[in-house]
Design a protein around this nucleic acid. Structure first.
Lengths: 339, 339
DNA sequence: TTGTAAGCGTTATCAA
DNA sequence: TTGATAACGCTTACAA
């Protein structure tokens, strides 16, 4: 038993009744044992635990959350499973939530938890106790005002939601310091139209301005999605206009990769001719083949922070919305070099 | 309403009772409307639907699955969220299952759906109607014999489980044909100890043997995990032993990437000096910067097939275990060229 | 410390 | 076509 044997004679999973009968006690006693109540005699407890083993009993989550006062479930909405950064985010969320006895249910925009319109619909049906929005929240998520929400890794366009995000401006400043330290004086920035991109650029410019090196920044912002192709195109336009650029900071790793292939197309070597750095420290950047210098947004810590915030908000729903910025970290690799 | 307003006066979500009262009908009638029963008068139906709208009512999944005969839920076990191929697999699974009214719940080895030891534990508690194992199944998953299971994208080490997987041997053969057509006669293989790797190699060798070109294959199999580092090391050892190799086929894209960086370390250019190809057609391979020729294992189709198989097994639990092989597809990119 | 009994929000089975 | 009413498997007062 315990090895996956069907539970009761009729093939259906065992219930608390079956356990009670087998252990010779009442259902309530079984329930108490399940909840690790201290006021159960060792003798009974052991009898119950033995019956549970023998019957391969497992409480029905449906019954538990229906009968109980809490569902002990947290919903996590991902913008897209293809964005790898959620892996680290989940790790952090788990640390903060799962270990506190909460179940995590993950859904992306498409993986509706049923036949619902949005993932949030499904979560509301499940009576989750709180929701984590990973990334930029869709504006029309229709979350009830009473539902505790925290936005992790994106600006809160949602009212009354807590936020835990990477400090993009600080990251931009770090990029500036890194490139200035390497002796670059003409720095290019390529990015998109997102708020994060704008912040990163602002940080870069602030960092360069703060230095006394006389260095300067030129930028090219692309409309549309921040894709690899956009990065390649942007770096081409940037170099056409400013051939003296020796270092390029991209708003994210994907665009940085595009910049690298754009540079290769022009016969420019990285980092000998031009240094390149990205943002997010994706697995892609970390491969030896790419070896992209990047800014680590510390998703694990963002996840942990978001989980803690959510717990705090569940405990005190009326607390004012709180915004936490996580300090990023520069990871130097082979794509940046002294000039 | 419908915009996320709390439902009832006391802030708790509306129940079927609230809807019934508001619409002036019995709870049973509301339930019938919910189930799209045809034997409800249009008048009543509209009254009920209006009440649902006004109260922002949403059925409790807990109550539904407790009272109903089926949970309409399928559990998906991923080996690791970091393996991107599951994204496509999920797309296929959704097509086959979600559209049939099934809810998909995803868990990886770490994201336990609760405080359970394994993700399967959580699924059993949720009373899922079937389980999809994505990738190589852990041997000690302890799934009850009565639970419908299909292994998607891995060899079934599980008894009585259906399997839907990529035809690794056919993929290896395709690699052979591609490289032979480009004129390569000395082909290297680098791989790991997995069954998939062995099959891919076997396919490569069979493909080369079948040709009359007089080409040959030399291989280097690494112990341990099939990482980028392993790929780099393997290609180095391979070239030390066989400097005349002009094309390398790696058992997967990650090792192929390693091979590319290993070749770069030796000052060899890809594809001018050595052609490289991988397997899995990961997003990494598809980037313009990497542009790796690879074998697409068609995960979307595997997912769809797995979903369909699972439905078939749920319908007929006693059917014999079935194995489906999906024909892979070669995707030529810039890392392979004529010699 | 243990048992009894009343919910929790649905579906399902009957009658009406 | 509708409405009572009994499950479903568990938690939680309240009693004992």
């Amino acid at each position: 038993m315990g090895d996956g044997t069907p539970a009761t004679a009729d093939g259906k999973p065992a219930t608390i009744y079956d356990v009670a009968a087998r252990a010779g006690v009442s259902k309530s006693l079984v329930s108490l044992v399940l909840q690790r109540s201290p006021k159960v005699s060792d003798q009974r407890r052991e009898a119950v635990l033995r019956a549970i083993q023998e019957l391969d009993y497992r409480p029905s989550t449906a019954a538990v959350s229906l009968a109980g006062t809490r569902s002990r479930t947290i919903g996590v909405v991902l913008d897209d499973f293809r964005n790898q950064w959620f892996v680290d985010l989940l790790t952090g969320l788990r640390e903060a939530l799962q270990d506190q006895g909460h179940r995590l249910v993950v859904a992306d925009r498409f993986l509706n938890t049923g036949l619902d319109v949005s993932p949030v619909e499904g979560f509301l049906s499940m009576r989750v106790e709180g929701i984590v929005i990973a990334g930029e929240p869709d504006t029309d998520l229709a979350i009830p005002a009473s539902m505790p929400v925290v936005v992790a890794g994106g600006r809160a366009t949602l009212p009354r939601a807590d936020t835990v995000a990477n400090d993009d401006r600080a990251g931009g400043r770090m990029a500036a310091e890194h490139l200035l330290a390497l002796g670059h004086t003409r720095i290019g920035f390529v990015g998109g139209r997102s708020a994060a991109s704008a912040e990163r650029r602002a940080g870069l410019e602030a960092g360069v301005a703060a230095a006394t090196s006389g260095a300067s920044v030129v930028t090219h912002v692309m409309p549309g999605e921040p894709t690899e192709a956009a990065g390649a195109e942007a770096v081409g336009l940037l170099l056409d206009a400013h051939p003296d650029v020796t270092a390029v900071f991209a708003a994210n790793d994907v665009m940085a990769l595009g910049a690298m292939s754009g540079l290769a197309d022009r016969g420019l070597r990285v980092p000998e001719d031009v240094s390149v750095m990205g943002y997010d420290d994706t697995p892609l950047a970390a491969t030896a083949y790419v070896g992209l210098t990047s800014i680590d947004d510390r998703s694990v810590d963002i996840g942990r922070g978001a989980g803690e915030r959510l717990l705090a908000r569940i405990a005190d729903p009326s607390a004012p919305a709180h915004e936490t910025l996580v300090e990023p970290r520069l990871v130097a690799r082979r794509t940046t070099a002294a000039r």
